[in-house]
Amino acid sequence: MKKIPNEDLKSHIERVRDLKIRDDDVYLATYPKSGTHWVWEIIVMLRRGSAEYEPSPKEAVFLDFKGPDVIDKVPSPRVLNCHWPCNLTPRGIFDKNIKIVHVQRNPKDIIVSFYYHHKNLGGRPFTESFLEFLPLTLGTYGIFQFYPWYKYVKEWERFTKTHPEQILNLYFEDMKEDPVREIKKIDKFLGTGRSDELIQQIAQACHFDNLKKADLEIKEKEHMTQGRKPSIMFRKGEVGDWKNHFTVAQNAEIDEWLQENLAETELKFRYTI
């Protein structure tokens, strides 16, 4: 996927914020490495009423990199997806009271996943060890160039408190623990009314190993730069992999950072299941 040059980013954001939103759109909001591909595929299957994979990848409607000139041509129903914070969401999502599915993941596993994402991304030498990479994630910019993680989750929490009927907050860890239960939540929220049998089929089709295989064999690759080879988007998809990377001192450091930055929130994250 071609990255937008920094000098064009501001204009791209404004174009996306003015995107023409349709009444039947659904908006998937996620911080990077929080299960975007997984939940996007689930929503598409629920809306279609079939456990068959969508040939076009979620990148085809990924607002971080796709502008209105592309998104406007995508046929309905669309499942738009974006990593941007609440305050950069397309205005029409709020104006039209479009349903928002927001997926969160514990930040320790996000950091590990993000480390490997950048390590395997290519395009530039990546020599940082995890020991060197971790301090960068706790700085002003968090682990994402657009917005720090803790500000991102706090902003969506504030939105949820004022618009609880418009947003469904899911957790990656809950999805891993009981995908059928969580897919039923999405089904109810979207009003798709699918049968228990179909929801079971969707849960199986969207199991990590099956999604990884489908990404390699089925998904159209014109939206990505990697071509038809294993995607860096699918590594482990586990809960608790952070334990294999954090030292005791690093874990204590991030716990202190979390306590400081989430002190005034009601957000609770699970680090194991």
Rank of each mutant, 00 (worst) to 15 (best):
F62R: 07
D69L: 07
V44S: 13
K66L: 12
W40Q: 01
K66S: 12
D72N: 15
F65R: 05
M45L: 09
E41R: 04
E41S: 14
D72F: 07
D64L: 11
S50Y: 05
K66Q: 14
E41M: 04
E59T: 01
I42S: 02
Y53C: 06
V74E: 10
A51Y: 11
V61R: 00
I71D: 03
I42D: 01
I71C: 12
D64Q: 08
F62S: 02
L63S: 10
P57R: 05
V74A: 14
V61E: 11
K66P: 00
K58C: 08
P57C: 03
A60D: 04
L46Q: 06
Y53L: 02
D64T: 06
K66H: 07
P68R: 09
K58I: 14
D72A: 13
K66E: 15
F62M: 07
I43R: 13
I42G: 02
I42L: 02
F62W: 14
M45I: 11
S50I: 08
A51D: 15
R47G: 08
G67E: 07
E54R: 02
I42V: 15
R47W: 02
E52S: 08
F65H: 13
D72R: 13
G49A: 06
V74R: 03
F65Q: 10
D64G: 04
K58W: 09
K73W: 07
G49C: 14
V61K: 01
F65E: 15
I71V: 13
A51M: 04
S50C: 14
P68H: 05
I43P: 10
D69I: 01
P57L: 09
R48M: 10
K66M: 15
F65W: 04
L46H: 02
V44T: 12
I43D: 14
K66F: 05
P68E: 11
I42E: 10
V44P: 00
S56D: 15
M45D: 12
F65P: 00
D69R: 07
I71Y: 09
E54K: 01
G49I: 10
E52D: 11
S56K: 06
K58Y: 15
G49E: 05
D69G: 14
D69T: 10
E54A: 04
I43K: 13
L46M: 05
R47D: 02
E54P: 01
I42Y: 03
V44E: 10
V44K: 13
M45C: 14
A60T: 08
P68D: 07
K66I: 02
E41L: 02
E41Y: 00
G67H: 00
K73M: 06
R47E: 12
L46W: 04
V70Y: 09
L46V: 04
